[in-house]
Design a protein around this nucleic acid. Structure first.
Lengths: 145, 145
DNA sequence: GGCAGTAACTATCATTTTGCAAGCGACTCG
DNA sequence: CGAGTCGCTTGCAAAATGATAGTTACTGCC
Protein backbone atom coordinates (compact mmCIF):
# COMPACT_ATOMS: atom_id res chain seq x y z
CA UNK A 1 0.00 0.00 0.00
CA UNK A 2 2.72 2.45 1.00
CA UNK A 3 6.25 2.83 -0.28
CA UNK A 4 5.95 2.95 -4.02
CA UNK A 5 8.59 4.50 -6.19
CA UNK A 6 11.90 4.88 -4.43
CA UNK A 7 11.58 3.06 -1.12
CA UNK A 8 9.33 0.04 -1.24
CA UNK A 9 8.27 -0.45 2.36
CA UNK A 10 11.77 0.02 3.66
CA UNK A 11 10.85 2.70 6.14
CA UNK A 12 10.59 1.59 9.77
CA UNK A 13 7.95 4.25 10.40
CA UNK A 14 5.74 2.44 7.89
CA UNK A 15 6.33 -0.78 9.65
CA UNK A 16 5.23 0.71 12.91
CA UNK A 17 2.16 2.36 11.48
CA UNK A 18 1.11 -0.86 9.77
CA UNK A 19 0.32 -2.21 13.20
CA UNK A 20 -0.94 0.72 15.23
CA UNK A 21 -1.47 3.44 12.68
CA UNK A 22 -4.86 4.62 13.75
CA UNK A 23 -6.46 6.70 16.40
CA UNK A 24 -8.58 4.09 18.13
CA UNK A 25 -5.77 1.56 18.42
CA UNK A 26 -3.63 4.08 20.22
CA UNK A 27 -6.43 5.16 22.50
CA UNK A 28 -7.15 1.53 23.34
CA UNK A 29 -3.53 1.04 24.33
CA UNK A 30 -3.65 4.18 26.41
CA UNK A 31 -6.75 3.02 28.28
CA UNK A 32 -5.38 -0.44 28.88
CA UNK A 33 -2.33 1.12 30.42
CA UNK A 34 -4.68 3.00 32.73
CA UNK A 35 -6.08 -0.28 33.91
CA UNK A 36 -9.17 -0.44 31.73
CA UNK A 37 -8.54 -3.92 30.43
CA UNK A 38 -12.06 -5.17 29.76
CA UNK A 39 -14.28 -4.76 26.76
CA UNK A 40 -17.06 -2.92 28.55
CA UNK A 41 -14.64 -0.62 30.32
CA UNK A 42 -13.00 0.30 27.06
CA UNK A 43 -16.27 0.77 25.26
CA UNK A 44 -17.76 3.13 27.81
CA UNK A 45 -14.52 5.00 28.41
CA UNK A 46 -13.85 5.61 24.74
CA UNK A 47 -17.40 5.93 23.50
CA UNK A 48 -16.47 3.66 20.60
CA UNK A 49 -18.93 1.54 18.62
CA UNK A 50 -18.88 -2.10 19.77
CA UNK A 51 -18.07 -3.57 16.37
CA UNK A 52 -15.17 -1.19 15.91
CA UNK A 53 -13.80 -1.94 19.33
CA UNK A 54 -14.02 -5.66 18.65
CA UNK A 55 -12.16 -5.20 15.38
CA UNK A 56 -9.44 -3.08 16.96
CA UNK A 57 -8.93 -5.48 19.82
CA UNK A 58 -8.67 -8.36 17.38
CA UNK A 59 -6.22 -6.43 15.22
CA UNK A 60 -4.04 -5.39 18.14
CA UNK A 61 -4.10 -8.93 19.47
CA UNK A 62 -3.22 -10.30 16.05
CA UNK A 63 -0.43 -7.74 15.74
CA UNK A 64 1.04 -8.93 19.00
CA UNK A 65 0.45 -5.84 21.11
CA UNK A 66 -2.31 -7.30 23.22
CA UNK A 67 -3.05 -10.66 24.70
CA UNK A 68 -6.54 -11.90 25.42
CA UNK A 69 -6.89 -13.65 28.73
CA UNK A 70 -9.89 -15.31 30.28
CA UNK A 71 -10.12 -14.17 33.85
CA UNK A 72 -13.33 -16.02 34.59
CA UNK A 73 -14.51 -19.36 33.23
CA UNK A 74 -18.07 -19.16 34.41
CA UNK A 75 -19.38 -16.75 33.37
CA UNK A 76 -16.89 -16.51 30.47
CA UNK A 77 -15.14 -13.16 30.85
CA UNK A 78 -12.04 -11.87 29.09
CA UNK A 79 -9.55 -9.09 29.51
CA UNK A 80 -6.86 -7.68 27.28
CA UNK A 81 -3.33 -7.30 28.56
CA UNK A 82 -0.32 -5.59 27.06
CA UNK A 83 2.41 -7.79 25.65
CA UNK A 84 6.03 -6.68 25.67
CA UNK A 85 5.50 -5.12 22.26
CA UNK A 86 2.44 -3.29 23.52
CA UNK A 87 4.23 -2.04 26.62
CA UNK A 88 7.10 -0.88 24.44
CA UNK A 89 4.69 1.28 22.52
CA UNK A 90 3.52 3.23 25.56
CA UNK A 91 6.47 5.66 25.63
CA UNK A 92 5.44 6.74 22.15
CA UNK A 93 1.99 7.56 23.45
CA UNK A 94 3.59 9.59 26.21
CA UNK A 95 5.60 11.49 23.61
CA UNK A 96 2.45 12.12 21.58
CA UNK A 97 0.80 13.28 24.79
CA UNK A 98 3.62 15.72 25.48
CA UNK A 99 3.29 17.09 21.97
CA UNK A 100 -0.48 17.36 22.31
CA UNK A 101 -0.13 19.20 25.58
CA UNK A 102 2.33 21.63 24.05
CA UNK A 103 0.42 22.42 20.87
CA UNK A 104 -3.18 21.66 21.75
CA UNK A 105 -3.20 21.79 25.50
CA UNK A 106 -5.89 24.33 26.32
CA UNK A 107 -7.87 23.45 29.42
CA UNK A 108 -7.16 21.01 32.19
CA UNK A 109 -5.36 17.85 31.12
CA UNK A 110 -4.40 14.69 32.91
CA UNK A 111 -0.75 13.82 33.32
CA UNK A 112 1.67 11.25 34.62
CA UNK A 113 3.61 11.74 37.81
CA UNK A 114 6.77 9.95 38.83
CA UNK A 115 5.72 8.00 41.91
CA UNK A 116 9.06 8.49 43.63
CA UNK A 117 9.66 12.18 43.01
CA UNK A 118 6.05 13.27 42.59
CA UNK A 119 7.10 15.39 39.63
CA UNK A 120 5.20 15.47 36.37
CA UNK A 121 6.84 13.35 33.72
CA UNK A 122 8.28 15.28 30.77
CA UNK A 123 8.75 12.82 27.90
CA UNK A 124 11.51 13.63 25.43
CA UNK A 125 12.90 11.52 22.62
CA UNK A 126 16.68 11.27 22.71
CA UNK A 127 19.30 9.35 20.81
CA UNK A 128 20.53 6.69 23.21
CA UNK A 129 24.01 6.91 21.69
CA UNK A 130 24.64 10.61 22.04
CA UNK A 131 22.13 11.33 24.78
CA UNK A 132 21.05 14.40 22.84
CA UNK A 133 17.40 15.17 22.10
CA UNK A 134 16.48 14.26 18.57
CA UNK A 135 16.39 17.39 16.48
CA UNK A 136 19.33 18.97 18.27
CA UNK A 137 21.96 17.36 16.07
CA UNK A 138 22.11 17.01 12.29
CA UNK A 139 21.13 13.60 10.98
CA UNK A 140 21.49 11.87 7.67
CA UNK A 141 19.15 9.34 6.16
CA UNK A 142 20.65 6.12 4.92
CA UNK A 143 18.76 3.99 2.42
CA UNK A 144 18.27 0.23 2.83
CA UNK A 145 20.37 -0.74 -0.20
CA UNK B 1 -15.90 12.15 19.61
CA UNK B 2 -13.48 10.69 22.09
CA UNK B 3 -13.44 10.95 25.85
CA UNK B 4 -16.92 10.13 26.96
CA UNK B 5 -17.67 8.96 30.44
CA UNK B 6 -14.93 9.69 32.88
CA UNK B 7 -12.45 11.91 31.08
CA UNK B 8 -14.00 14.24 28.53
CA UNK B 9 -11.17 15.05 26.17
CA UNK B 10 -8.77 15.69 29.01
CA UNK B 11 -6.12 13.33 27.71
CA UNK B 12 -3.16 14.94 25.98
CA UNK B 13 -2.76 11.87 23.77
CA UNK B 14 -6.21 12.60 22.36
CA UNK B 15 -5.19 16.14 21.71
CA UNK B 16 -2.19 15.02 19.78
CA UNK B 17 -4.08 12.43 17.76
CA UNK B 18 -6.77 14.95 16.89
CA UNK B 19 -4.21 16.64 14.68
CA UNK B 20 -2.05 13.86 13.29
CA UNK B 21 -3.91 10.72 14.18
CA UNK B 22 -3.71 8.94 10.87
CA UNK B 23 -1.27 7.01 8.80
CA UNK B 24 -0.99 9.29 5.79
CA UNK B 25 -0.44 12.43 7.83
CA UNK B 26 2.50 10.86 9.57
CA UNK B 27 3.98 9.52 6.36
CA UNK B 28 3.62 12.95 4.78
CA UNK B 29 5.57 14.48 7.66
CA UNK B 30 8.20 11.80 7.32
CA UNK B 31 8.63 12.47 3.62
CA UNK B 32 8.78 16.21 4.05
CA UNK B 33 11.55 15.73 6.56
CA UNK B 34 13.37 13.76 3.90
CA UNK B 35 13.21 16.76 1.63
CA UNK B 36 10.20 15.78 -0.44
CA UNK B 37 8.35 19.04 0.01
CA UNK B 38 6.31 19.26 -3.17
CA UNK B 39 2.98 17.80 -4.06
CA UNK B 40 4.19 15.68 -6.93
CA UNK B 41 7.14 14.38 -4.98
CA UNK B 42 4.89 13.34 -2.14
CA UNK B 43 2.33 11.78 -4.41
CA UNK B 44 4.78 9.62 -6.30
CA UNK B 45 6.80 8.72 -3.23
CA UNK B 46 3.78 7.67 -1.17
CA UNK B 47 1.60 6.27 -3.94
CA UNK B 48 -1.32 8.15 -2.44
CA UNK B 49 -4.42 9.25 -4.34
CA UNK B 50 -4.26 12.95 -5.31
CA UNK B 51 -7.49 13.94 -3.60
CA UNK B 52 -6.41 12.29 -0.37
CA UNK B 53 -3.01 13.94 -0.47
CA UNK B 54 -4.61 17.32 -1.04
CA UNK B 55 -6.91 16.78 1.92
CA UNK B 56 -4.08 15.70 4.19
CA UNK B 57 -1.88 18.60 3.22
CA UNK B 58 -4.75 21.00 3.86
CA UNK B 59 -5.47 19.38 7.21
CA UNK B 60 -1.84 19.44 8.32
CA UNK B 61 -1.51 23.02 7.19
CA UNK B 62 -4.70 23.96 9.01
CA UNK B 63 -3.49 22.14 12.11
CA UNK B 64 -0.31 24.21 12.07
CA UNK B 65 2.19 21.46 11.30
CA UNK B 66 2.89 22.55 7.76
CA UNK B 67 3.19 25.83 5.98
CA UNK B 68 2.44 26.29 2.32
CA UNK B 69 4.93 28.45 0.49
CA UNK B 70 4.99 29.57 -3.10
CA UNK B 71 8.47 29.06 -4.45
CA UNK B 72 7.66 30.15 -7.96
CA UNK B 73 5.21 32.81 -9.08
CA UNK B 74 5.19 31.95 -12.73
CA UNK B 75 4.40 29.16 -13.13
CA UNK B 76 2.63 29.01 -9.78
CA UNK B 77 4.34 26.31 -7.75
CA UNK B 78 4.05 25.58 -4.05
CA UNK B 79 5.92 23.59 -1.46
CA UNK B 80 5.09 22.50 2.05
CA UNK B 81 7.47 23.22 4.88
CA UNK B 82 7.46 22.06 8.47
CA UNK B 83 6.50 24.58 11.10
CA UNK B 84 7.93 24.42 14.63
CA UNK B 85 5.01 22.22 15.63
CA UNK B 86 5.66 19.95 12.68
CA UNK B 87 9.37 19.71 13.41
CA UNK B 88 8.56 18.94 17.03
CA UNK B 89 6.58 15.96 15.87
CA UNK B 90 9.46 14.32 14.04
CA UNK B 91 11.05 12.76 17.14
CA UNK B 92 7.80 10.88 17.64
CA UNK B 93 8.11 9.47 14.14
CA UNK B 94 11.64 8.38 14.95
CA UNK B 95 10.35 6.64 18.06
CA UNK B 96 7.66 4.91 16.02
CA UNK B 97 10.36 3.95 13.55
CA UNK B 98 12.49 2.43 16.29
CA UNK B 99 9.50 0.44 17.48
CA UNK B 100 8.69 -0.67 13.96
CA UNK B 101 12.25 -1.80 13.42
CA UNK B 102 12.22 -3.77 16.64
CA UNK B 103 8.91 -5.54 16.18
CA UNK B 104 8.36 -5.54 12.44
CA UNK B 105 11.83 -5.04 11.07
CA UNK B 106 12.35 -7.98 8.75
CA UNK B 107 14.35 -7.10 5.65
CA UNK B 108 16.50 -4.12 4.88
CA UNK B 109 15.32 -0.85 6.38
CA UNK B 110 16.48 2.70 6.07
CA UNK B 111 17.82 4.51 9.12
CA UNK B 112 19.14 7.79 10.41
CA UNK B 113 22.79 8.35 11.12
CA UNK B 114 24.29 11.00 13.34
CA UNK B 115 26.30 13.13 10.93
CA UNK B 116 29.04 13.76 13.46
CA UNK B 117 29.58 10.31 14.87
CA UNK B 118 28.33 8.30 11.90
CA UNK B 119 26.48 6.03 14.29
CA UNK B 120 22.90 4.91 13.74
CA UNK B 121 20.48 6.89 15.85
CA UNK B 122 18.70 4.91 18.57
CA UNK B 123 15.62 6.87 19.63
CA UNK B 124 14.44 6.35 23.19
CA UNK B 125 11.78 8.23 25.11
CA UNK B 126 12.99 9.40 28.50
CA UNK B 127 11.62 11.57 31.26
CA UNK B 128 13.56 14.82 31.06
CA UNK B 129 13.33 15.20 34.84
CA UNK B 130 14.75 11.89 35.92
CA UNK B 131 16.63 11.05 32.74
CA UNK B 132 15.27 7.53 32.99
CA UNK B 133 13.63 5.76 30.04
CA UNK B 134 9.88 5.80 30.33
CA UNK B 135 8.71 2.44 31.54
CA UNK B 136 11.67 1.96 33.86
CA UNK B 137 10.08 3.77 36.80
CA UNK B 138 6.59 3.50 38.26
CA UNK B 139 4.23 6.29 37.26
CA UNK B 140 0.90 7.44 38.50
CA UNK B 141 -1.84 9.03 36.46
CA UNK B 142 -3.29 12.27 37.74
CA UNK B 143 -6.70 13.40 36.52
CA UNK B 144 -7.44 16.92 35.31
CA UNK B 145 -9.80 17.77 38.19
C1' DG C 1 1.08 30.03 -33.13
C1' DG C 2 0.36 25.17 -32.01
C1' DC C 3 1.42 21.13 -29.55
C1' DA C 4 3.62 18.36 -25.86
C1' DG C 5 4.76 18.47 -21.05
C1' DT C 6 4.66 19.43 -16.03
C1' DA C 7 2.97 20.80 -11.37
C1' DA C 8 -0.79 21.08 -8.53
C1' DC C 9 -4.80 20.17 -8.06
C1' DT C 10 -10.43 19.23 -8.48
C1' DA C 11 -14.46 16.24 -9.80
C1' DT C 12 -16.70 12.01 -10.11
C1' DC C 13 -17.76 7.71 -8.77
C1' DA C 14 -16.80 2.92 -6.68
C1' DT C 15 -15.13 0.71 -2.64
C1' DT C 16 -13.98 0.44 2.12
C1' DT C 17 -14.31 1.74 6.74
C1' DT C 18 -16.77 3.66 10.42
C1' DG C 19 -20.58 4.45 13.30
C1' DC C 20 -25.25 3.55 15.30
C1' DA C 21 -28.80 0.65 17.01
C1' DA C 22 -30.53 -3.60 17.99
C1' DG C 23 -30.04 -8.29 19.21
C1' DC C 24 -27.89 -12.65 20.99
C1' DG C 25 -25.51 -16.28 23.97
C1' DA C 26 -23.89 -17.40 28.33
C1' DC C 27 -24.22 -16.92 32.40
C1' DT C 28 -25.48 -14.90 37.60
C1' DC C 29 -28.39 -13.13 40.98
C1' DG C 30 -32.74 -12.59 43.31
C1' DC D 1 -38.46 -17.76 36.24
C1' DG D 2 -37.25 -12.99 35.07
C1' DA D 3 -34.04 -9.17 35.04
C1' DG D 4 -29.34 -7.84 34.47
C1' DT D 5 -24.36 -7.94 32.89
C1' DC D 6 -20.57 -8.87 29.78
C1' DG D 7 -18.80 -9.57 25.40
C1' DC D 8 -19.72 -9.52 21.58
C1' DT D 9 -22.40 -10.01 16.27
C1' DT D 10 -25.56 -8.38 12.66
C1' DG D 11 -27.68 -5.07 9.58
C1' DC D 12 -27.74 -0.89 7.66
C1' DA D 13 -26.59 4.10 6.89
C1' DA D 14 -23.04 7.60 6.69
C1' DA D 15 -18.46 9.00 6.04
C1' DA D 16 -13.80 8.39 4.50
C1' DT D 17 -10.78 6.55 1.13
C1' DG D 18 -9.12 5.25 -3.31
C1' DA D 19 -8.90 5.08 -8.64
C1' DT D 20 -9.34 7.63 -12.68
C1' DA D 21 -10.09 11.41 -15.45
C1' DG D 22 -10.07 16.11 -16.16
C1' DT D 23 -8.68 21.19 -15.24
C1' DT D 24 -5.76 25.31 -14.70
C1' DA D 25 -1.72 27.68 -15.44
C1' DC D 26 1.96 27.84 -17.11
C1' DT D 27 6.96 26.61 -19.88
C1' DG D 28 9.28 25.15 -23.39
C1' DC D 29 10.09 23.59 -28.41
C1' DC D 30 9.57 23.90 -33.20
Amino acid sequence: MTGHENNPGSCPVDRGLMRVGDRWSMLVLRDIERGLTRYEQLRTSLGIAPNILAKRLAALTGAGLLEKRRYSQRPPRDEYLLTDAGRDFLPILMAIGAWGRKYNGAGALSRHLDVETGEAVRPVVIDANSGAPIGSRPLRLEGPD
